[in-house]
Design a protein around this nucleic acid. Structure first.
Length: 267
DNA sequence: AATTCCAACAACCGCGACTAA
DNA sequence: GTTAGTCGCGGTTGTTGGAAT
């Protein structure tokens, strides 16, 4: 059947999302859910197509998304799973808690494909293929269980800088962003001591009964009119995701973070 | 200092699957 | 069974910052 793309409608915005749009979308989904993506933008007052809203939510704004670089374990898991599942990114993502198919796909195309190629080119290297195959052959539930990455059910803190091969790969890159927006370097060091966020955090935060919300969420909620389900730590961590490329975004998230009490609250 | 190249990642696009009328 | 609307997935593109020249 012939049909135009949903975004073809005149007046609908395309391209990068602004912090204001994010705020509207998060607030709307938090309040009403996302039963109908098609109708959502109109209800929420967004000049976006439903598809764009869905993508933004699924790939970026969803509260259970894990931010930060991929750990070695995660990368190995992706390689293994890709070998078993092929380019079924959503299936791979389902086995990597907190990671999106889009993110995994990007990592695959930019890093892992090259790494695997290099590995296979090395004569003495034991490829993942053999190891993965033997794991499955041994009868373990390799296809059905989520990969155990040592941080199940919680939003992980940023990995330690030792896990990154270079400054470019490291979250430290993003520290510069925060320096630019006013956070001092020594304060950034304290981010290593992010409090652990329990499994119940997001379900509590998103539930209609706000009285059960963790205090961190109240801190955000009380200090401003924002309706974000973010703790101070996550407000900052989400800020990482925006990166220095979206300066307005950084200012916005920094504002959320400061309103939530800043780094003092984290220690 | 200017230009080019490259890596990273957010977002778009088109298609197939699913579902309700 | 057919049609139209919607969703979700995978491929691809566009933009950006940093490194290299």
């Amino acid at each position: 059947m012939a049909r135009g793309h949903c975004c073809d409608k005149m007046g609908l915005k395309k391209g990068p999302w602004t912090p204001e749009e994010d705020k509207i979308l998060v607030a709307h989904v938090q309040k009403h859910g996302h039963g109908n993506w098609r109708a959502l933008p109109k209800q929420a007052g967004l000049l976006r197509c439903g598809k764009s809203c869905r993508l933004r939510w699924v790939n970026y704004l969803r509260p259970d998304i894990k931010r930060g670089n991929f750990s070695r374990e995660e990368e190995d898991a992706i390689i293994d799973l890709h070998e078993k599942l092929g380019n079924r990114w959503s299936a791979i993502a389902a086995r990597l808690p907190g990671r999106t198919d889009n993110e995994i796909k990007n990592v695959w195309h930019t890093n892992l494909k090259k790494r695997l190629k290099k590995k296979l080119a090395t004569p003495n290297s034991k490829g993942h293929s053999t190891a993965a195959a033997s794991k499955c052959d041994s009868g373990s539930a390799c296809q059905s269980e989520p990969v155990n990455l040592n941080f199940p059910g919680k939003i992980s803190p940023q990995p330690s800088s030792s896990e990154f091969s270079s400054i470019t790969d490291s979250p430290i890159r993003n520290v510069e962003t925060h320096i630019n927006t006013g956070i001092k370097e020594e304060q950034m060091d304290s981010l290593e001591s992010f409090p652990e966020i329990h499994e119940s955090f997001w379900s509590d935060a998103l539930s209609s009964d706000n009285s059960s919300m963790p205090s961190a969420f109240h801190a955000v909620n009380d200090e401003s009119e924002l309706q974000f389900p973010f703790s101070p730590a996550d407000a900052l961590e989400v800020g990482y995701g925006h990166s220095s490329r979206i300066d307005d975004g950084m200012d916005f998230w920094y504002d959320v973070f400061i309103r939530a009490g800043g780094l003092q609250e984290l220690n």
